[in-house]
Simulated assay, not measured.
Amino acid sequence: MSDVFRALADESRRSLLDALFARNGQSLSEMAENMPMSRQAVAKHLAILESANLVSTAWRGREKLHYLNPVPIGEIVRRWVGKFEDARVDALTDFKEQMETSEEKRRA
């Protein structure tokens, strides 16, 4: 999972992932057209994203297409974000129950 965090730490790589989210299945040339960096820099960033399993590739003839793989990001959400969300939802549920109980006591 540390390779995923390392890959996501770079703003350029996050921009590449955003581009794939907007339009999946792009070639290196297509991605380099819309990035403020050289084609070689895009290729290096894509290789890092691919090694972190955030991007998968498929060949279409002589063209290598890049696809977003959301699974590692989903694992991060479940592992790191989900547990904090669960605690927040639990706290709000407890607060709601306390408010309803105090309201019922005031009416009685």
Score class of each variant (00 low, 15 high):
R14V: 06
N34R: 15
P72G: 04
P36I: 03
V77G: 04
D90W: 10
R79Q: 11
N53K: 08
L54N: 02
S29V: 09
P36A: 12
K105C: 04
G74P: 01
S29T: 12
K64E: 05
R13L: 03
D94H: 07
R23D: 06
R78E: 11
W80E: 10
R13C: 02
K105G: 02
G61V: 11
A9H: 11
W80P: 00
K83E: 06
R23S: 09
S15D: 09
Q98L: 15
R107K: 10
D3K: 15
S56Y: 06
A19T: 13
E30V: 04
G25M: 07
E75C: 01
K64R: 15
V89M: 09
T93H: 13
M31Y: 03
E50D: 11
L8P: 00
A9Q: 13
A32L: 14
A22L: 12
N69I: 01
D86A: 14
G82I: 00
R6D: 13
D90V: 07
A52L: 11
Y67P: 02
L16R: 00
R62K: 15
V71R: 08
L16H: 01
A22F: 14
E75V: 02
R13P: 00
R79I: 02
N24E: 08
M31G: 03
L68K: 00
R13A: 02
L54R: 05
L92W: 07
K83L: 08
R88T: 11
S2T: 14
A7I: 03
E97V: 05
R106P: 00
L68G: 00
M1H: 09
V4I: 15
F21A: 14
Q26W: 02
N53G: 04
R88I: 13
A52I: 14
T93L: 10
K64Q: 11
G82F: 01
M35S: 11
G82Y: 03
H66A: 03
R107W: 03
D18Y: 08
L54E: 03
D90M: 14
A32G: 14
